[in-house]
Design a protein around this nucleic acid. Structure first.
Lengths: 117, 117
DNA sequence: ACACTTTTTTCACAGGCCGGTCACGCACTC
DNA sequence: GAGTGCGTGACCGGCCTGTGAAAAAAGTGT
């Protein structure tokens, strides 16, 4: 369904996704992602740089209408962050935009105590 | 049919396969593999690093259409793991990817909680 | 052809993993 | 400070996997 990039290798920063192999690499190390996690990461990367609403993400990944009370996207963003942090420490990939949604944008590294933007 | 590597010696980590001798060595020690086991190991090694579905493995090794309920691949992966563990303890070769299939990737040893740098 | 061994296939059960939901507490905006 | 949004650990049902063991098939020697 993600016609534009389906099957193509996606890259961003230290991240790489090979959809046809169900494989995601961070710094060359395989992330051990589940099906949903991989789909969500793909959806985010395909929209890299822009703020994406939960609704858009949910519809794209789950393929069903979005209910405002559904927290699935949040939960899976959390799981992704955790696994990304494991594989590529001190990088930031998924940024929260309060009240709007999430934005994927790989950031080189983390400087000690800088404030969130 | 695996034209590219058929008959050629395959190596990965501590593993070596010499197809024309029906021989597999781990750490220099011969694994005592049966025909099916050897074929499956070859199929996995030829696809090293990527996640391979049961269907692809089954079709490649058994040469017949795959039935979803068929557990043969699982059983033989189990047998391979057992023999590999015997010959080369504390190495990991075949990794399970839940819902997708298996991935061959030799891993030096297991370090429990240390993070790679 | 027969008996015996080895390998392959099937079966069934136990346990593990994943997806989805909930609830609690903190974060953020105004 | 009030009100809403967000992060996250915990939990449960259901499907996926690992695996021993039985059954079937194939191989081996006489």
């Amino acid at each position: 369904m993600e016609a534009a990039t389906d099957g193509r290798i996606l890259r961003a920063g230290e991240l790489e996704i090979r959809p046809e192999e169900f494989l995601a690499l961070a710094d060359g190390r395989p992330l051990n992602l589940t099906a949903r996690e991989l789909e969500l990461l793909k959806a985010l990367m395909e929209r890299a740089g822009r703020i994406v609403s939960r609704e858009e993400l949910y519809v794209s990944v789950w393929g069903e209408p979005y209910r405002k009370s559904d927290r699935s996207v949040d939960v899976y963003v959390g799981k992704l962050r955790q696994k990304l942090e494991e594989a590529a420490p001190h990088h930031r990939f998924i940024h929260t935009h309060f009240g709007f949604g999430y934005r994927f944008s790989p950031q080189p590294a983390e400087r000690s105590f800088t404030r969130l933007s």
